[in-house]
Amino acid sequence: MSTREAVINATLIGGRTPLPVSSSGLVLLAHADDLLVEDVIAAGWTHYTAHTIRDGLELRARLRRVRAAGFVDLPGHIHEASRGVAVPVMGPHGVIYAALGVVVPNDGAPVQGILELLTVGAAGITRALEEAYLPEGGASGAGTRPGIRPLVSSSLASLDYFAGLDAGADSGVDDDRPVVV
């Protein structure tokens, strides 16, 4: 989401950007298995600016730095005037679930304040995921309630609706319908 006066953000909701050129994509790729990295390298990607990662050797080196630093800062990778910054969002048991990122002006300003905000946000999401997915008592499993607890509340009518979707498999509802998460 952007304001009308914001810097150029070359992404669209529902759009696609190659993993090696976006800050969130690099965070995810840095935590991916080697086979996926090799597939991405083999497929190639668009080089938007002179700052865009050019090849597999450069990509692998950047991924090592991202893992070590715990964040990525990509000035000018998609547009010279824009800078992508992202951090990982960890889920239960330390597995990466997502990346949290922003696009800001590529003006050479220090990135530390942005990283602090992103890190606090990612930590909050991680806590919410742990509360939803881990048994009460935390990762040790000491509690008595395994399973998923809802992150947000919903109306009883909504819950009944979603339960009906699950039951609809035997009522002639198309099995290729979108999955609601």
Rank of each mutant, 00 (worst) to 15 (best):
P105N: 07
D39C: 14
I125F: 11
L29A: 02
G14D: 09
G147Q: 05
I114F: 00
G56T: 10
H51V: 05
M1I: 14
S82Y: 15
L63Q: 11
P150R: 15
A157I: 04
L35D: 15
D39F: 15
V7W: 03
A167E: 09
W45V: 02
S171C: 15
P18N: 05
E131P: 01
F162E: 10
L117R: 13
E131W: 13
G70T: 00
S2A: 12
G91F: 01
L134K: 06
P146V: 13
D176I: 07
H77M: 10
S158N: 10
A42I: 04
D175C: 09
V180Y: 15
D33F: 09
T119E: 01
F71E: 00
E38T: 05
L57W: 10
V180C: 12
N9C: 15
A6Y: 12
R64H: 11
G56E: 13
R65W: 01
P178E: 08
S171T: 15
T3M: 13
A61V: 01
D34S: 13
T49M: 06
D55F: 05
H79I: 10
P20C: 03
S23R: 04
V102K: 00
E130Y: 04
L115D: 00
A68T: 03
N9H: 11
H79T: 08
Q112N: 10
A163K: 12
V173K: 12
Q112V: 02
R145F: 09
R145K: 11
R177T: 01
L35R: 15
Y48D: 03
I53V: 13
S24I: 13
D33S: 08
G101R: 09
A30C: 01
L117M: 12
I125H: 06
L117G: 12
P18I: 00
L26E: 08
T46I: 12
I96A: 02
P110K: 10
A61R: 08
G25D: 01
P110H: 11
L151A: 12
T126N: 01
S140M: 02
V89S: 00
E58C: 04
H47D: 07
A6L: 11
G113P: 06
Y161C: 07
T119H: 02
A169N: 05
G94P: 13
D166C: 06
E130H: 08
G108W: 02
S140H: 01
G25H: 02
T52L: 05
A10L: 06
D107H: 07
R65V: 10
I78T: 04
V87S: 03
L12H: 12
G108Q: 04
L63G: 10
I13M: 07
A98V: 13
L57A: 11
G137L: 15
A30N: 00
A139P: 05
G56F: 11
V180D: 14
H77P: 01
E80F: 14
L35G: 12
I41V: 15
I8K: 03
D170I: 07
V179Y: 14
L156R: 09
H47W: 02
H77K: 05
P105S: 08
D174E: 12
A10Y: 11
